[in-house]
Structures are given as structure tokens and as C-alpha cells.
Design a protein around this nucleic acid. Structure first.
Lengths: 159, 159
DNA sequence: TTCAAATAGCACTGTTTCAGTGCTATATTG
DNA sequence: CAATATAGCACTGAAACAGTGCTATTTGAA
């Protein structure tokens, strides 16, 4: 349940790898030599990340991808939003559905607003989680996320 | 992304409705008269909830379902776990996959343990969210969830 | 007793989403 | 020019999901 797609998984692997690489470009070939990933699919994912401005591409021989922003400024929310689309927990608040005239169950639907709060909390977690904090070695990222969550709770917002 | 299934949505609608009903049984017909839901599918969902012990069924005429536990003791985690199966964010830690010898990418996979922490945080949120707190009218539930999250953070667990 | 209303159980179908691939064009380096 | 990369677009097979068909069983009431 609530499973991330393979695309998101590959995106995270690639991005974390690029953090280690620093300014050097990372090619799809390099990624697939280190991890057993399907080359063409990883290429598609990286194209999406480049289109979203999270990575920059260098075409041609010796080309590849590198981070477009420092890893502290790339959030898990932005990554997942790019690969999997806008966040939604129930079908009520999917953008496509709202465009068609809103939730059919609403306003009698009793779970819409409460579940939305849960969704928003998860989304805040994703937006508070930086790419830097996903890299195992430095511990600073984790502290930062906990700090921001504390602030979020202290601000009085439910959940 | 991270969309709940229709089954989970129907389960939540039914359970919230049962909170309002109190000790009186709620039939599938009653639910589908109030909300525009597919009757047979809602019936399947309620059967699953009954099998998991979250609701008790009363067969025969004038039968239906009612909560097997007070709404304070039914968690969102238990509900979603029942309808959608065990929680997993990446494909690495799906139970079926682990049974087949573990993640193919691991141990070179750099994102396994960090993303697992995110998953655990979301799961804790689900387990800290009671059915009572999902019912709009009383505000006590929300306070309770925030309190439990504060305790979780104060205990020093990351995220 | 008979009937109607309800759950129990099981299997099936059509649709959608997803993982992965084919193919061609374009850019860059040597 | 040739090799190696990304850019773009479309397609296929498989899996998950929404929803339905059908029959059996239980219960309450006429």
C-alpha cells in the first residue's frame, strides 16, 4: 500500500548518487553499471527530472546529468511530485477529478476534510525532507527535518 | 501519487458513518442510500473489515455492521493495513520481495534505509490517527494525535 | 412456514496504471 | 566521420484495481 513507483525509486537512487558525484556529470550507463537498473527506464526518469529543472543535462559524448540545485534545496516532495504527479490520498481531491466538477460524494462525504489533513501532513513531511537528508553519511539532514517538524507542530497545526 | 484505493475510501466512509450510528447496525443499503457508492463493492469492503475484526456483522433481515471496538481504539493504520495490505514505500521492503531473498539492489542501494525512515514516520502517523479523530464533530481526537506525535518526537526517534 | 432482506464467499471481467522497450533524432567529443 | 550521450515519442505486456455475477446462508417478520 502507498507504494512508490519504480520510477520514483530510480529517481532517488540517481539523485543520491549525484550528490556523491558533486559537480561531475553522471551518465545513465554509470548508474546502471553500479546498480542493476533497466537502462532505458532510468533514462526516461532522468529526462523527466531534467524537464522539471531538478537536474541539468549535458548531451553528447562524456555527457550525463548533474544536480541543478544544491541537495539542501531539492526536496523529496519536489522529486515525487515530478515523477508521480500531484499528491492525493483520496480520489476526492485528485486534480483530474476536481476538474470534472468536484467529488461526486461531497458534500455528504464525511471523510474528505479529515483525510485531507493527513495528506497535508505527509506532504509537509516530504517537502521538509531534503535530498541532502536522504544521503546516509551526513547526519545534519535528519536533524534539520526533525527541527522543521517540531516547528510545524509548535505552530498549532493539527497532526 | 500515493493514492488510496477506492476500497480504503469506502471503508473510511463506512466506519465514520458507524461512529455516528453508535450501537445501531449499519447496512450496506443504508450506506449506499446516503452516499453514491457501488453497493456490491462496499459490501466486499465491509466483509474484509469484519474478517479483520474491526466491525462485527449481524446477518439476516435487519442485519448490518457495527464497530467491534470503540473508535478511539481503531487506527487508520489498522484500517488501511486491512484493506490495502502491509505498508511499503519502496519496492525494496515489500514483504513478498523480501521473502524472495531480499532487495536485488541492496546492499549497494543508497536509498533503502533513509526512505525507510520516511515510511516509518508515515506509518506512525497512521497508527496514531484514530477513527475517532477522523470524525469531524468532536475536536478531542485531533488533540490526541498531536500529543502522541509530540511524544514520538520527544522520544528522540528521527523524523 | 414462507418470504424478504441481509451478509458470506468466490470467481470473473473490463479498465487503468505501470514497468519496460523500440525507434529515431540530435548533440558533443575526439 | 564515428562513438557516445541525451531528447522525444510511442508502443507492449503485465499487474493492480474497480466493479459485477452468482449462489449459499442467516435472520426477522408477515
Amino acid at each position: 500500500m502507498l507504494q512508490l513507483t519504480k520510477r520514483s525509486e530510480y529517481a532517488l537512487i540517481a539523485l543520491v548518487h549525484m550528490v556523491d558525484r558533486g559537480d561531475e556529470v553522471t551518465s545513465v550507463r554509470e548508474l546502471c553499471e553500479r546498480y542493476p537498473l533497466p537502462k532505458r527506464l532510468v533514462a526516461e526518469v532522468l529526462k523527466d527530472l531534467a524537464h522539471a529543472g531538478l537536474v541539468v543535462s549535458q548531451r553528447g559524448s562524456q555527457g550525463g546529468y548533474s544536480l541543478a540545485l544544491p541537495p539542501e534545496r531539492i526536496t523529496l516532495g519536489k522529486i515525487l511530485g515530478t515523477i508521480e504527479g500531484a499528491p492525493a490520498l483520496t480520489n476526492c481531491d485528485s486534480i483530474a477529478h476536481l476538474r470534472d466538477g468536484g467529488c461526486e460524494v461531497h458534500p455528504t462525504c464525511p471523510i474528505r476534510s479529515p483525510i485531507e489533513r493527513v495528506r497535508e501532513h505527509i506532504w509537509r513531511l516530504f517537502e521538509a525532507t531534503t535530498l541532502r537528508s536522504l544521503v546516509p553519511t551526513p547526519q545534519a539532514g535528519h536533524v534539520q527535518v526533525v527541527q522543521r517538524l517540531r516547528e510545524s507542530l509548535a505552530a498549532g497545526t493539527p497532526y
